[in-house]
Design a protein around this nucleic acid. Structure first.
Lengths: 149, 149
DNA sequence: CGTGAAAGAATCTCTAA
DNA sequence: TTAGAGATTCTTTCACG
């Protein structure tokens, strides 16, 4: 991965619809060469996929929520990870350092929906203790790409 | 935004390189109709952009960090938001409920880099108190789309 | 809002250096 | 790795239902 690869990735990250000729002009390569580099970057896994950056509000997912989670003593941690991976609302789930075991990031349409989320966690007997934090505004929102659909 | 729009968005989110004809086959529309819907979804802002999902490890950004931040009493909050928006390492910054004012998500190549990040925050006189949490593993990693480059 | 067909681009393949 | 040329495929446009 050299500087040209990085530049190509940068350009595509901003606008993945740019043509190979256009990108080639920016990096000083022929379209076919750019194509070959993108093929390699994809094959190596550096580029995971071409995707969309969506507006959460337009998708009816206005409310961004972070939930700190301490699992129950007797919780099946593997099952929890699978549960998180398949949960349509959970955008991220990280095993973290500090006082809590997991940090879960999710989007819901409105705060009342959070109750159902936590209730479901309890029902699956994952939830020990938790703390819920809601984003009021986001100076740097990050990109939004839902998992399911 | 109807069911077909949602389906189109879902398909493109999984693979934004799928052809209009291909998508049309999946949703029961002609390629030109799919094209028109994507045009409208983009114009309305529901689709913000076509972009890449990258592998953080391949980009040398293995370490995922969350920093809880309480600003200094005399900090310029507007300046902090701008700082965050332009900081290449900050992937997200949210104003949140709870004991802390801001939650910042960033990626660095390795933990020692976090020190520099915090030092810079202090130098800009933003930082009151903070708490740093590092992700050990990520059952649901989420997508990774750097801002800069 | 959707369609089909034509025109215009872009991508992909292959060969050669 | 890169480049160029040709073949193929995709996107875009538009007149019409």
């Amino acid at each position: 991965m050299d500087d040209i690869d990085l530049k190509i990735i940068g350009l595509l990250a901003l606008d993945a619809k740019r043509s190979l000729a256009d990108i080639g002009g920016s990096v000083g390569l022929a379209p076919s060469s750019v194509n070959e580099r993108i093929r390699r970057l994809t094959a190596s896994g550096a580029i995971r996929r071409f995707t969309l950056d969506l507006d959460p509000a337009a998708m009816g997912m206005q409310t961004l929520v972070f939930v700190w989670i301490a699992l129950r003593e007797d919780a099946d941690e593997t099952a929890f990870r699978e549960y998180a991976a398949n949960h349509p609302l959970i955008l991220e789930c990280h095993h973290v350092t500090g006082a809590w075991a997991y940090l879960v990031k999710l989007r819901v349409s409105a705060p009342p929906e959070i109750e159902g989320f936590l209730a479901d966690l309890k029902e699956h007997r994952f939830l020990g203790r938790s703390e819920t934090v809601i984003a009021l505004s986001s100076p740097v929102p990050g990109s939004f790409t839902p998992k399911d659909m």
